[in-house]
Design a protein around this nucleic acid. Structure first.
Lengths: 127, 127
DNA sequence: ATTCATGCAAAGCCTTTGCAAAAGT
DNA sequence: ACTTTTGCAAAGGCTTTGCATGAAT
């Protein structure tokens, strides 16, 4: 993999604002620095960075979002505004061994996603 | 909601084989009985059944799968063959209160999905 | 020099929608 | 009769790809 300024800019964008942007959100932000960047380049770099393990893709039903924090953490989707938040509080999952036993396979990842309403949307609702 | 034979057939298909089929898999199977059914009808009925709470959609990154078992259970994606399995073993998640506290919002669902390799794929790999 | 990255446009894939005809109550 | 459902074809939205050009080593 060769060095590329556009790819750097994509990583910068992901580092600057940890709001789990979509590909086109990333594209828009990179365009502030490189107005000519194409969405295809953004997609190509994102999938490259994913296979490299530099970033993660948050499977969000047809609209992928990207996160440069690859450490073990959980995501919270606000069902009202669609925003994605990080959760770093430790979570303990019991029963994993039983689950593995039940299917007779090997579990590599336990992907936990919460859904609900975020602080801001609750506040709005009460007004 | 009026009664419809096509919708019945879709439910039948989902009941008959609990392999979490995609919309086009369902369409193919329904075609054994109703060769003229269109994919649009399948999609329309699936989304209707989802809003009714009769079935659930398993968010699977661009390729939705459907499950007629709406009881509380977990899913296991085999990363090798792409198959989706059910897990009914009870799982306990600790730390949810802390998570809720961290974001200051309200968690409605804890969506847990496992990824790994299923029994069959492990067997194949060892041959 | 050779290899990888990029922009553009086109295609791909899954899903939704508009419309007129058919089926359900 | 009136309303929902259907098939068809078209459009939609997100993502990937082919190709020639441009940048990196």
């Amino acid at each position: 993999m060769k060095h590329s300024h556009k790819r750097d800019a994509i990583c910068e964008v992901l580092k600057a604002k940890r709001d789990h942007p979509t590909a086109d959100m990333i594209c828009e932000r990179v365009r502030e620095k490189y107005p000519e960047i194409s969405l295809a380049t953004v997609y190509r770099n994102l999938s490259q960075l994913c296979s490299d393990g530099a970033i993660i893709k948050i499977g969000a039903a047809g609209r992928e979002r990207y996160d440069i924090d690859t450490s073990d953490h959980t995501h919270f989707f606000c069902e009202a505004c669609g925003e994605v938040y990080d959760i770093f509080s430790p979570l303990e999952l019991y029963g994993l061994a039983n689950a593995e036993c039940e299917i007779g396979g090997k579990i590599n990842f336990a992907h936990i996603t919460f859904r609900g309403q975020c602080k801001n949307c609750i506040r709005k609702e009460n007004n």
